[in-house]
Design a protein around this nucleic acid. Structure first.
Lengths: 343, 343
DNA sequence: CTGAAAGCGCTTACAG
DNA sequence: CTGAAAGCGCTTACAG
């Protein structure tokens, strides 16, 4: 149990005294807000090293009315997409020595959102990132001051001045076009619940169908947590000889649907093609290896932070905010064996 | 783009003025550090509501030398266990209106650990939780002051005064005993890299074998990111007629091993039983449905926060710290179809 | 029970 | 270029 670190951390005054200058000068040295005499600079540097001084980010935050930190507002904390996006944001934050915090909103307690946002804002983050994958994200936006650097991840195009979205819709479309291109008459869709945004796999699926002039079947809705529902949907689909291709909301759903299909004696992909989404680690291991679509959530997070950081810097420098913009992080088709031309 | 929230958030002085009392009294009212006159209390309550006042947690942190926040130090930010544990900690933090931050350490840059810890500590968290699943966690411990409330998640028993560990080792042992109980002569083990702690699946596996007097085969090591390695190990194992049971380091590895085994013409479970670990969502969907072991990481996180919170409260109340202790969060066997008695 | 004052550790006009 | 002073928004002895 090696717990060394001595208490009574040194403060700026200690450094100043040791270096023989004022605290103000140390502060200027630290922040580069004014040139300080070279010789003094060196003495300060020495003192800092000797004392192991680290500025208190809290005191700095109080003086600046702003903390070197980024707060993300997310929902659905256990999900793959949220976690991976967090990894990206944190990576960015770390590269700039920013603290990283996350506060998880609940879709079920929309009434609490205001309070949670205000609490989080009480920590004076330099900026916030909200994942607008659902209703709670949209609600959070209402309580964020206009002048607070903000970037929205997900959501509808044009929802915010600074936004990074993934290619959900494009992915859904690409997958459906791929299936159609294989020769299927139409593509069935098993959907997990999606947010209120338009940028969804489901919309992409519908786009592709509509454009191709293919019939648009009723959507089959399933729960994200109970895969048995997906298995059941697979059985239902399996009893209908007209279904030859299905696009599942994600990889887990895809394998569950395949299981249901097989229970009804349908072969995959010979009788019916099934595609997933997300390209999870197990996808290539499945038999048949799952055709899927891979998103890059980590990159989304990194881009979101970079975009936020630009705003923060501009703001601190008293410059006008950067050009508002929207970045789209591309995903890509991963073609494997679970889909083929109809026999 | 509904961004309402007005700027110039009210401060304690505003509330005081409106209520006709001093700021000190408002502070006392807020913190319950002294009884305040009932009538004044009501006026203060009114003023707070009217103004929508929220205390600045930064100012409070500076005055108290402590922020209502918890910082977790983790490694391996993308992993299932880390994410789920975070979910639990955050849940606990939220229930106490604590801010939740995480700083991810890198196993590859052990030299940076000190700096990262100090930076995070600069935010004056009320307490920290470190996930000691590896070397970086152990390193972080060195820079945490003795008097800082701390709980360790994972690690070796006795590593910290306050600790919550999971039943990794017990799980490994339970799984191996189960396999042995089925009648297998011994159990092969395919291991992903594990931390320096003793509380590992691999050790549990060895325990069970040793106790049963069964031979202890060489461990097969595989990468966590490249499942192809596991497939290859499956092939190797498949060529050896003496292997009838294998315990894989986790579910992904298990399915990959099964694939390799099948390539060599071995049937699962008829010819060789294979068990996974972690019980991921896809486990029951696999054919055969995977026998696995389920850990409750969320609960670990919740317990860790609760344990930390107790320390924080005691400390603030000037009481002696709570009895040091170790909590173990139990996991459980999930028996399905991928293992059976040898034929 | 309550107010005036000092202090938490920084930053930043204001002078010089 | 640099120091003394005031201020960021709270909390908490110290008096009363």
């Amino acid at each position: 149990m090696p717990r060394n670190a001595r208490r009574s951390t040194p403060v700026i005054k200690d450094v100043a005294k040791l270096a023989g200058v004022s605290a103000a000068t140390v502060s200027r040295y630290l922040n580069g807000t004014a040139n300080v005499n070279e010789e003094k600079s060196e003495r300060i540097a020495q003192a800092i090293k000797l004392l192991g001084y680290k500025p208190s980010i809290v005191a700095r935050a109080l003086a600046n009315r702003e903390m070197d930190s980024v707060m993300v507002f997310a929902t659905d904390s256990g999900s793959f997409s949220t976690n991976m996006t967090n990894v990206g944001v944190e990576r960015g934050a770390q590269s700039k020595s920013y603290l990283f915090g996350v506060t998880t909103l609940s879709e079920h307690r929309l009434g609490d959102v205001r309070q949670m946002v205000q609490m989080a804002l009480g920590a004076n983050p330099a900026g916030v990132i909200v994942y607008e994958y659902d209703r709670a994200g949209a609600e959070a936006l209402r309580y964020i001051p206009d002048d607070m650097p903000l970037v929205i991840v997900g959501g509808n195009v044009g929802e915010g001045a600074y936004q990074v979205i993934n290619s959900e819709r494009e992915g859904g479309r690409a997958m459906t076009e791929y299936l159609l291109g294989l020769g299927h008459r139409t593509v069935y869709h098993v959907a997990r619940s999606e947010g209120p945004s338009d940028n969804t796999r489901t919309n992409g699926w519908r786009d592709a169908l509509t454009e191709a002039g293919a019939p648009v079947p009723e959507i089959l809705h399933v729960s994200a947590t109970d895969l048995e529902e997906s298995v059941e949907v697979g059985r239902v689909l399996g009893r209908r000889s007209d279904v030859t291709a299905v696009f599942a909301g994600n990889d887990e759903t895809a394998i569950a649907v395949i299981n249901g299909l097989r229970e009804e004696g349908r072969r995959v992909p010979e009788d019916v093609s099934v595609a997933g989404f997300e390209d999870r680690q197990f996808a290539p291991m499945w038999k048949p290896a799952l055709t899927s679509y891979r998103q890059n959530f980590i990159e989304m997070g990194e881009r979101a932070f970079a975009m936020l950081y630009e705003q923060i810097q501009a703001r601190r420098a008293g410059e006008r905010p950067p050009q508002s913009r929207l970045e789209t992080v591309q995903g890509r088709m991963v073609v494997r064996d679970s889909a083929c031309a109809p026999r």
